[in-house]
């Protein structure tokens, strides 16, 4: 077969070599290298969005503070009587998870936006790795979630929060939060590629994320809830990760919450993640 000639300058790489085994190995390596490179490229695009869009940046900066202040000062006095530890110590891990779940929910809204605006057509006509379109958004929102966690912890410490669980567990807090949110981002991605419309994506986000984050140990101890709610809150993955984060910061059993959190995260990334990628590839 005659290779097409580029008009001038750059030429794309020729098709991979021909023996079946070499081809298989070559294409896996080739795939892998470009998945990373293309994902990095699209992550960069998303991060530029945060830099250039003050509204997105401001809501990422002030959103968690609003919740932190509201619950600490307005509700803290009333709710705080039901927690064994200082309410702000109790609250912070919950606020980290709750707000950053909203942060990574942007993944799906953004993907839906890309589809609406015809971006996805351009991407799909390029020789890039297809999973990078979703991957880039997931990684970018995770990075934002990580920095948002650190920023929120900083403010919380200023207004009186303290770590009582040791140095290393405390240090691992933002990483655990980011890791879980990374997993959760894939759920949002699945929503985004399924509905393909920003309005619908954001209302689903709202009506799923609010109950899910509130019906957990995020803001109040589960024991204060009615029995039937306790059952739901108990199995809610948000409760698992909030309890894990709380015990990392304040001391307490870790492994018992780490295992379910880890399993949920793995399920989100590999189960939901492959479903989302599959749906994306099937778009026509």
């Amino acid at each position: 077969m005659n290779l097409p000639q580029a008009v001038n300058g750059w030429r794309p790489e020729p098709p991979a070599p021909s023996t079946p085994v070499r081809e298989a190995i070559g294409s896996v390596l080739y795939e892998f290298r470009w998945i990373i490179a293309d994902t990095a490229m699209l992550t960069w695009r998303m991060l530029m969005h945060y830099r250039r869009n003050p509204e997105m940046l401001l809501s990422t900066i002030f959103g968690p503070l609003m919740f932190l202040f509201l619950f600490t000062y307005v509700f803290g006095g009333a709710i705080g009587r039901s927690t064994e530890i200082n309410y702000i110590d109790y609250l912070l891990p919950g606020v980290l998870i709750q707000n950053n779940i909203f942060t990574v929910m942007q993944t799906g809204i953004g993907l839906a936006d890309d589809m609406q605006k015809g971006f996805v057509d351009r991407y799909r006509s390029l020789p890039m790795a297809r999973s990078a379109v979703i991957g880039g958004r997931v990684v970018a929102t995770t990075v934002i979630a990580f920095f948002s966690a650190i920023w929120t912890i900083g403010i919380a410490v200023v207004i009186g929060m303290r770590f009582h669980g040791g140095f290393w567990p405390g240090l691992s807090l933002p990483f655990v939060v980011a890791l879980f949110c990374f997993g959760f981002a894939w759920i949002s991605a699945l929503v985004g590629v399924s509905v393909r419309d920003t309005q619908t994506a954001s209302s689903i986000t709202f009506f799923v994320a609010i109950p899910l984050t509130f019906l957990s140990s995020t803001f109040v101890p589960i024991e204060t809830m009615p029995g039937w709610l306790q059952a739901f809150a108990g199995v809610n993955p948000i409760t698992q990760v909030v309890n894990l984060s709380r015990n990392l910061a304040q001391g307490g059993p870790i492994a018992v919450y780490a295992l379910p959190t880890f399993l949920w995260t793995v399920f989100f990334v590999f189960g939901i993640g492959s479903l989302a990628t599959w749906r994306y590839k099937r778009i026509s």
Binding site: F75, R81, T200, F206, F207, L215, V220, T224, M225, L229
Partner: peptide, 27 residues
């Protein structure tokens, strides 16, 4: 329908959330 849903469903959701989630903890 979007607007209608947000202006009716979300108030109901918050009534339920506040009552059941916070109700037990706020004296």
């Amino acid at each position: 329908p979007e607007l209608l849903m947000f202006s009716t469903l979300s108030p109901v959701m918050f009534v339920l959330l506040f009552n059941y989630v916070f109700g037990g903890a706020i004296p």
